[in-house]
Design a protein around this nucleic acid. Structure first.
Lengths: 253, 253
DNA sequence: CTACGGCCTCACGCAGCGTGAGGGTCAAGT
DNA sequence: ACTTGACCCTCACGCTGCGTGAGGCCGTAG
């Protein structure tokens, strides 16, 4: 029963961690070898290996090293509580990741759902994530923003198809008025603008006239928005933008 | 239509990000305000806000800032490919997290599953994650280790119940021999040790005699292992350890 | 005696900001 | 004209868990 000792590389090979990791664990006081040679070489004993095993177990569970240190150093420490907490954190993380995956899927659907859109079309007016960003700007990322995110997140694939269809329908009616030469200040145009506002309000987030106005400005200011809307006809973006403004002014009186 | 500009705090309020974040985005060239006052104040234009929106959209999707920079800077950039890649990464991350949650659950079950175990019992001989750490040490964390992890991960709740029962049964038979005064070098004891080895081999990972010997050493060396086994009776840990060694030597001949 | 492999100690790097420290700027109030 | 305050600026370290050299000593085989 010799008191066997191991040098860093031995321990590394045996445990599967890197030498650097052992150095690190030593540096942060998580696993300090019981002895050192006169030359400063780390010498790990069996007990150290056992401690390392425990550490690795907890590391697999995703506990931060600081917590691991507490758990393995103090037998009195409530490991169960630590694990329960860890479980909760992991669950939260898992949910976050799921949400992000759904969001990416939505974005991808928006990208390639209709025919062959290309890069720029990510800023397609139908992609909800875009609107979320809008909402963020208008709302300052408060509680209302969270609500909006919740709302759009709850939409199913079918919901999106319906929303897309309704939006498309409205845009076509708007384009028709524009093509017919109706001025954006005409009540008919203003009504359509109002319908547009309410549509956003229903599908995406509470949309005041002020908010709607900002949106309208962007429709003409940014080439990506504009080009996208102008798919419905040249000048449709500007027409809608003007109608939105007129509608907003009408509402003020 | 004044060319409105915003100062950092305005943008922060509107977009929901912090001022620090805007500084950061400026520093890394992700979002540099179009203008600065003579005093060095950042002045953001509408176009900057739009760019910020896009950035935030992609950030929500979890893309690293560097990628976001490429996507929003270069309209030619393949956003779809970036998103597909991102989706894959997220999926991998999600799976990882799920695995960790399962592992934590397994550990918790081991902790409180049987009656009222306390802290130290995390090193209960039945918790698979413990053995994974063992395995890691023996195998140097190679391909075999990965296989073992895969194997234990595939066990269902029922599987664990069964495994636990079988293990418990064997331990009781071992304890019975010990109590009957049978020496660990007795063929009966050695046979039980061999059964013990094969059980590990079946349930957890390929367990050679050498590996088994190491395990046996730990059963007596570490108080947590020992106490756990000694639940079956005083000296059971030492008995099993000795039997394992004897069995190993018998196998060598 | 000289390689050559193994060990050591710094110390920067990464991702995305949080959080002060220390110090100008600007519009309002006295 | 001067002083608040509210904002703005630029460093620059901190956090997580090591990876990855750089530069240099130790130990053993040839």
């Amino acid at each position: 029963m010799a008191a066997e000792t191991y040098k860093v590389k031995d321990v590394a090979r045996l445990s599967g961690v890197t030498v650097r990791t052992l150095h690190h664990y030593d540096a942060i006081g998580l696993l300090c070898p019981t002895r050192r040679t006169s030359a400063g070489y780390r010498l790990y004993a069996q007990a150290d290996l056992l401690r390392l095993q425990q550490i690795l177990v907890y590391r697999e569970l995703g506990l931060p090293l600081e917590k691991i240190k507490m758990v393995v150093s103090d037998p009195q420490f409530d490991a169960r509580a630590a694990l329960v907490e860890q479980r909760a954190q992991l669950a939260a993380k898992a949910e976050q990741t799921r949400d992000m995956i759904r969001a990416v899927d939505a974005a991808l659907r928006a990208l390639q759902g209709d025919e062959d859109m290309n890069t720029e079309d990510l800023f397609d007016g139908f992609d909800p994530k875009k609107y979320e960003a809008e909402v963020e700007q208008r709302w300052g990322g408060g509680a209302e923003y969270a609500e909006s995110v919740r709302r759009t997140k709850s939409y199913s694939k079918d919901d999106w198809v319906r929303i897309k269809a309704e939006t498309h329908d409205l845009m076509q009616r708007i384009a028709a008025q524009h093509e017919a030469g109706v001025p954006p200040t005409d009540p008919v145009a203003m009504d359509l603008a109002e319908e547009h506002r309410l549509q956003i309000d229903r599908f995406y987030y509470p949309c005041s006239h002020a908010m709607h106005g900002n949106l309208g400005q962007m429709y003409t200011a940014d080439v990506r928005f504009r080009d996208n809307l102008d798919e419905y006809g040249d000048g449709v973006a500007a027409f809608l933008s003007a109608a939105i403004e007129a509608n907003g002014q009408r509402a003020e009186r």
